[in-house]
Amino acid sequence: MSSRDEILSMIRENRPAFSPLPEIPVFIHEKPLAEWFTETLTGIGGKVVHLKDTGEVETRIQQQHGGVINTTDLSAAAKYRHATAQELEAVDTVIVPGIIAVAENAAVWVNEKDMINRLLPFICRQLIIIVQLTDLVPDMHSAYKKIRIDEAGFGVFIAGPSKTADIEQSLVIGAHGPLAMEVWFVGE
């Protein structure tokens, strides 16, 4: 018998009596979402910027220093689709669109389709995610209702810059991923 079949037959023999799968209720939250998100992201070392419209976004992008890869401009960013880690290692800033932002934990869902290359949001020194203010939801349950996790081959909730506290529980912002992270909300 293959290991697969052996494992499955042992599990079948040993599994407990049926236990029902619970429905997940809707939780009601009182806090205003934008303030809640900002409070959370600030608490984990990120920064929130509010921009009125695409015009303001454009201006702000122009103000970024160093090398920028902006995947909201698909045609310009397409050349990085097959770029290797060696080629991307030196990139300063990456700008990607986010699909859903979650107030309770400041996580933003980013899809492979929008990041062009899976490495981009991780290998850069600064990550900027642009999200429509209308795509802000209170909690993870509402977020999972709005996204399809297998829509692309890869998707990720990103909450703040990379960090570690592995040395004496001292929080260090900037571990292997970005050293800084901003969420730009667009809309009023």
């Binding site: 979650v102 934990n105 492979e112 991780f122 993870m140 996790i149 081959g153 890869f154 909450a159 506290a165």
Partner: peptide, 21 residues
């Protein structure tokens, strides 16, 4: 993450479904 370190969520919750090209 709240149980583990008191963070609201880990920085990255990465969902893998298909290999990259």
């Amino acid at each position: 993450a709240r149980s583990a370190t008191g963070q609201p969520v880990t920085t990255y919750s990465s969902h893998f479904h298909r290999p990259a090209p």
